[in-house]
């Protein structure tokens, strides 16, 4: 019913750039994108919520390159945009809602719902999700492997075939 994407090294994280360098000890703000995270829900699928996941991690040293300094870590993090593209011919039809959550193996860090859309626009193949503004992601993102979990609520059974999604996320990270 769901696929665990174990391609952890296949990261599509791209550092877009330094937005601003703040003085006074508040840290440096970066925008980091996770692009084209592919999540496939393998059939047979039954009406109702179906779950898929994608594992990734943010390695500050490789993302920041020359700007990385020893001991630098994520001090604050939030999600600035979340887009889901349906990569199959069915589009958003036959779906009631989409919810994105982030989770980690760290027992000290809880799963957080970070974005959702309910109801979904019909006759479209992509949707920008509504964000949970209170979700503070620094502990989740600084902790190695992060699980991006997509819950797709199917309006009807899909006994043959699969549903394919690509997820694009934009994070704002503050490092110190």
């Amino acid at each position: 019913m769901h696929l665990i994407n174990k391609k952890i090294p296949v990261l599509a994280l791209a550092l877009v750039g330094l937005l601003c360098a703040c003085s006074g000890g508040s840290g440096v703000v970066h925008t980091v994108q996770l692009k084209n995270a592919e999540i496939v829900l393998e059939g047979p699928l039954f009406a109702g919520p179906n779950q898929g996941q994608y594992a990734f991690s943010i390695d500050l040293a490789s993302e920041l390159g020359d700007q990385f300094q020893e001991g630098m870590q994520i001090n604050a993090a939030s999600l600035k945009s979340a887009e889901v593209i349906v990569a199959d011919s069915l589009g958003l039809n036959h779906l009631n809602s989409l919810v994105l959550s982030l989770a980690s193996d760290n027992p000290e860090v809880s799963m957080l719902e970070v974005a959702f859309k309910n109801p979904l626009p019909k006759e479209s193949s992509s949707v920008a999700l509504d964000l949970a503004p209170e979700a503070e992601l620094d502990e989740l993102l600084r902790d190695g492997t992060v699980y991006l979990v997509l819950d797709a609520d199917l309006a009807e059974d899909l006994l043959e075939g699969s549903r394919k999604f690509q997820v694009n996320l934009t994070f704002e990270l503050t490092t110190k």
């Binding site: 109702g48 809602s97 919810v99 959702f116 964000l131 609520d153």
Partner: peptide, 12 residues
């Protein structure tokens, strides 16, 4: 409040 429209079916 931002999460009050999340569907209950599927909620963890």
């Amino acid at each position: 409040p931002a999460l009050q429209k999340v569907p209950l079916k599927g909620y963890r």
